[in-house]
Simulated scan of single mutants.
Amino acid sequence: MRVLFFLLQKEFKQIFRDKALLPMIFLAPIIQLLVMPLAADYEIKNINIAIVDHEHSTYSQKLINKITASGYFVLSDYDNSFNGAFEQIESDKADLILEIPKNFEKDLSREGSQKLFIAVNAINGTKANLGGAYLARIIADFNAEIRLDWRQQSIASNTQIIEIVPSNWYNPLLNYSYFMVPGILATLVTMIAVYMCALNIVKEKEIGTIEQINVTPIKKIYFILGKLIPFWIIGNVVFTVGLFIVAHLIYGIVPLGSVLLLYGYLAVFLVVILGIGLLISTYSETQQQAMSLAFFCMMVFMLMGGLFTPIESMPEWAKIIANLNPVTYFIEVMRMVVLKGSQFADLKKHFLIMFGFALFFNTWAVLNYKKTN
């Protein structure tokens, strides 16, 4: 144990001596956690819409006002010609076209129905789908308002109406940052642990000090623990700063569940991630190789971990990869504990899976690490 103490002392001195490494460990995650939730917004706003109004009636003006007042659409063009509006799409000044036909109000009042034409620029599929869905919903609401106005007060009073009152659990205000910040924090902790652990060991190879350590009587297990424990502690510090300073003070996020439960899961998760970093270092001879492998792993962790895309919407082959991704479970646990207040009984499966990952990756890394006594 005395040998381990000296190794840890050496590692911390080596880490804090590197002036370029400290901002990367502590400052970069804070800046990323401040900026990324603001950019990763699931809501599509400022959708440019060109409206072709052949009617210029009271109803058409009410519909246009309802669309522009929704907060999702910006009126980029108001024209009498579809060709003119289509030029707006061709020049990327408009995302949708809404064409209101002649006699819109007259036919709607007389026949009880009327058709509107919507053209969507589908180059950006996500924006097209959501923009079209928003517009269809606004038109449906407008239609319901018109039907209600047509009813006589006496008839309307006797009509049975089903009222829907939504109740949003866990995130009542539908604040997207409450959903994104826990997931981004989990990803940033993963990034720091993987990169720092892998690069630290490979750096020893490049400067030649690992050869000196290999010929000493230091046991392999002590050497590996000396490399893993400092970054395990740093991972906890980064997580604490992100959870209690950035998430709480900046975004007002307060975990509904047990903070100790979060740290318990984090402790096991960091063992898994540091094992992956150690495994990368055993296959790398230079820091460039380690960074390339770590970058590949991080891209898989981020894109297949459910941070931006729900796992349920992925194809079956992608779901298999996601289920083999440790970050998937940590992001899920973060959201469950922070937003839902889940308890240990709800996370038993997640703990067992993470223990399995820890045993697998660290055993692989230790067996693959060659040390000569």
Score class of each variant (00 low, 15 high):
1 M>F: 15
4 L>I: 04
12 F>T: 07
14 Q>I: 10
17 R>C: 05
19 K>Q: 12
28 A>I: 15
29 P>Q: 05
40 A>S: 05
44 I>A: 06
53 D>W: 09
63 L>R: 02
67 I>T: 03
68 T>F: 13
68 T>K: 14
69 A>G: 04
74 V>A: 09
80 N>D: 12
80 N>V: 13
84 G>C: 10
90 E>M: 15
92 D>E: 14
93 K>T: 10
96 L>N: 08
106 K>F: 13
114 Q>D: 12
118 I>N: 01
122 A>Q: 14
122 A>V: 11
128 A>G: 03
128 A>M: 05
135 L>G: 06
135 L>D: 06
145 E>K: 05
147 R>C: 03
153 Q>N: 12
156 A>K: 15
157 S>C: 10
160 Q>T: 13
164 I>F: 08
166 P>H: 02
174 L>W: 02
178 Y>G: 02
179 F>R: 07
179 F>T: 08
196 M>T: 15
199 L>K: 06
202 V>A: 01
203 K>W: 15
206 E>N: 02
207 I>W: 15
213 I>G: 03
214 N>M: 15
216 T>G: 09
230 P>M: 07
232 W>M: 10
233 I>P: 05
234 I>V: 07
236 N>T: 10
247 A>G: 11
249 L>V: 03
252 G>W: 11
254 V>E: 05
254 V>P: 03
259 V>M: 02
261 L>W: 01
262 L>F: 02
265 Y>N: 09
265 Y>C: 09
276 I>C: 00
278 L>M: 08
279 L>Y: 12
280 I>A: 08
284 S>K: 05
289 Q>G: 00
289 Q>K: 06
291 M>C: 11
297 C>Q: 08
298 M>D: 10
299 M>W: 05
299 M>N: 10
307 L>M: 02
315 P>W: 04
315 P>N: 01
320 I>S: 07
321 I>H: 06
325 N>S: 09
326 P>D: 00
326 P>S: 01
329 Y>N: 00
332 E>S: 09
336 M>K: 10
343 Q>C: 09
344 F>Q: 00
345 A>N: 11
346 D>V: 00
348 K>F: 06
352 L>Y: 08
354 M>S: 01
355 F>Y: 11
356 G>K: 03
358 A>V: 03
359 L>P: 06
359 L>C: 12
360 F>D: 00
364 W>C: 02
